[in-house]
Design a protein around this nucleic acid. Structure first.
Lengths: 231, 231
DNA sequence: AAGAACCCCCCTCATTTGGGGGGATTTCGA
DNA sequence: TCGAAATCCCCCCAAATGAGGGGGGTTCTT
């Protein structure tokens, strides 16, 4: 679905950002990726071609907490034009500062949320909107393409962060099977009968699953696995 | 948010359906509520003022699996006009049959999904669209009202189904607290320290929570509670 | 041909949990 | 003011679990 011409495979996310900016003929493209956990809002993974001065100013001032684009992205499903932003005072100041640092007047963003709640916001920024006064007509026609693009760059960023895999513990099929039955209230002896294994084997699988999930109890392992969508 | 004039409190869902139809000046109003679990698609809770013949025909032929309105409602967030339907052959036949049974030409629906995935679809059906060729302009102006209405009737239907409460096991605050810590890998002795209770007490709470959740193990209880959104 | 990643089985031991009781007090709505 | 529900506490015992070990085997990739 995404433009193959971009050939995003086998390149870094930073490189992808540059190619996307060139392909869509905008000045700046930015990816924010918020991983789950306590640092969800604190330390997003960011790739952008904004001027260095703006990037460092943004990071040093913890603007990720202020940025109205990111705030709005939490509320809107699908691509949206920045004209939809209704800034508070604090955010108005942020936007003025941004302009001073070379950020352009118009933009749009598209958000992607994966199955375990990790969020990407891919933002496009340019001097003038392609599509009239706002980007809306433009992004309406490109809607599916943009959604697909956001999805792909999300996966690319995850692969980069987690060194090729998706950052989830790699449970073996048997481990998953045993965990599912455990979540269903079955004891290892029952699971052994269900799966036709020795109960020692089942306990072994559950132990390995527990260790992979960095858990001290089956209850915690089940909780983690289900919140990670593994079972 | 919803029109207070409807005074939907303290009336049955069936009565609410009639009042809604009168208030919005449409011929027919239908509520489909899909509860979770294995019978999610099989046996929805339905309240409608469609003619009896159509209702029985619909139910007997298991049309809930065919109905293009319900299918589309899975894909669209917010109210949508039935003109957005792009029927397959099977669905075209369904729609012809519907018309023969007195179903009108135009309509719109709004879906609500609650925190544990139970879905309501509230559908409006009339001879002609209020708002021009389609309902779209009309439902755009009524958007928030319709979303709120869908939410309220969803709760009403749940209350009717589950006899006043929302169908979720009623865990006490302490039970929830203990379950959360358990999901976090804490043993009852640790939880007792954290909460400043006797470990006997904590075990008592966890036992009660387990029983309320109809579970045989803490792992199962945690799994259920988290899938029900209770922790 | 070696290593990795599964898959399968076995053992012991201390601790935790499930399942069953029993209470006491407070709070809150009917 | 009665009862129900929540909160807190205690007991026992059998079974399950966690935490450590120890073996094998296949299959696939490198």
């Amino acid at each position: 679905m995404e433009p193959d011409i971009l050939n995003l495979d086998s390149c870094t996310v930073q490189e992808a950002v540059l190619r996307i900016a060139r392909f869509y003929e905008v000045d700046f493209v930015t990816l924010h990726l918020f991983r789950g956990g306590e640092d969800a809002q604190n330390k997003p993974y960011v790739r952008t071609n904004y001027p260095d001065a703006w990037v460092s100013h943004y990071l040093l001032n913890d603007y990720v907490r202020v940025d109205p684009v990111l705030e709005l992205a939490e509320q809107i499903a699908g691509p949206f034009c920045w004209t939809k932003i209704n800034p508070r005072q604090e955010q108005r100041e942020f936007m003025e500062t941004a302009i001073k640092h070379g950020v352009r007047q118009t933009g749009f963003s598209v958000r992607h949320v994966d199955s375990i709640g990790r969020r990407s916001v891919l933002s496009f920024n340019a001097q003038t909107a392609k599509g009239g006064d706002t980007w809306q007509p433009y992004i309406d026609t490109k809607r599916k393409e943009l959604i697909s693009l956001a999805y792909h760059i999300h996966l690319m960023a995850l692969a980069e962060i987690y060194d090729g895999n998706d950052g989830l513990p790699q449970l073996s099929p048997r481990e998953i099977e045993c965990l599912k039955w455990t979540a269903d209230g079955k004891a290892h002896t029952e699971i052994a009968i269900i799966l036709g294994l020795s109960d020692h084997t089942v306990r072994g699988y559950l132990k390995d699953a527990r260790l992979k999930l960095d858990s001290v109890s089956l209850a915690q392992a089940v909780s983690k696995a289900s919140s990670l969508g593994l079972i």
